[in-house]
């Protein structure tokens, strides 16, 4: 008989109350060139303001994002990661964002399994026309990461 194992993965991250008062998180944003990067440009041209914590890396397609990039970001410099691509069905490369979505779900499960809080890495669909949405997404991710505090788990210097 098939047994379903339902376990709630609990973050083993400890609240870091010792975060300095002027601490600001670093968020690594990896955006696809055709939709989300163009959308983030539109946020700029529309002069919509968002928190300055995100550092943006341009890739051709969200399917270019290797889970390695996410893990390396968390390990090296970032307190959180945002991956963003074209809406399903709108991929410039026909189907890349579907691969990205699947790969991301697996990566996220793995990260949760090893103890990261699920909000540390987030995924969004932002089209080239969605400047306001990009500002909203960045604000939300920044807010989420701020609540979680600085990331110490698995940081290079702590191993």
């Amino acid at each position: 008989m098939e047994t379903e194992v339902k376990e709630k993965i609990v973050s083993i991250e400890k609240p870091h109350l010792e975060a300095p008062a002027d601490w600001q998180p670093v968020i690594m944003g990896i955006l696809c060139n055709w939709c989300s990067y163009a959308g983030s440009d539109l946020t700029g041209t529309s002069r919509l303001q968002y928190p300055p914590n995100i550092r943006i890396i341009r890739v051709p397609c969200s399917s270019r994002v290797d889970p390695w990039f996410i893990i390396k970001s968390l390990q090296a410099s970032a307190d959180g990661v945002l991956i963003s691509g074209c809406h399903p069905g709108d991929c410039h490369y026909i189907s890349g964002n579907y691969y990205a979505r699947r790969r991301f779900l697996v990566t996220k499960k793995l990260l949760n399994f090893v103890g990261f809080h699920e909000n540390r890495v987030q995924f969004s669909w932002v089209s080239a026309a969605e400047g306001p949405k990009f500002a909203k997404v960045v604000s939300k991710v920044t807010e989420d990461i701020k609540k979680l505090g600085p990331l110490h788990l698995y940081k290079k210097e702590n191993i």
Binding site: I57, P60, C61, R64, A78, Y93
Partner: peptide, 27 residues
Amino acid sequence: CGSCVAICRSMAIDLAGFTDMQIINEI
């Protein structure tokens, strides 16, 4: 697009202009 680069288990494929080295350097 780079789909093949991310799927390659043995890291045998790279994307010119967006190589693993370039992106990891950025990170």
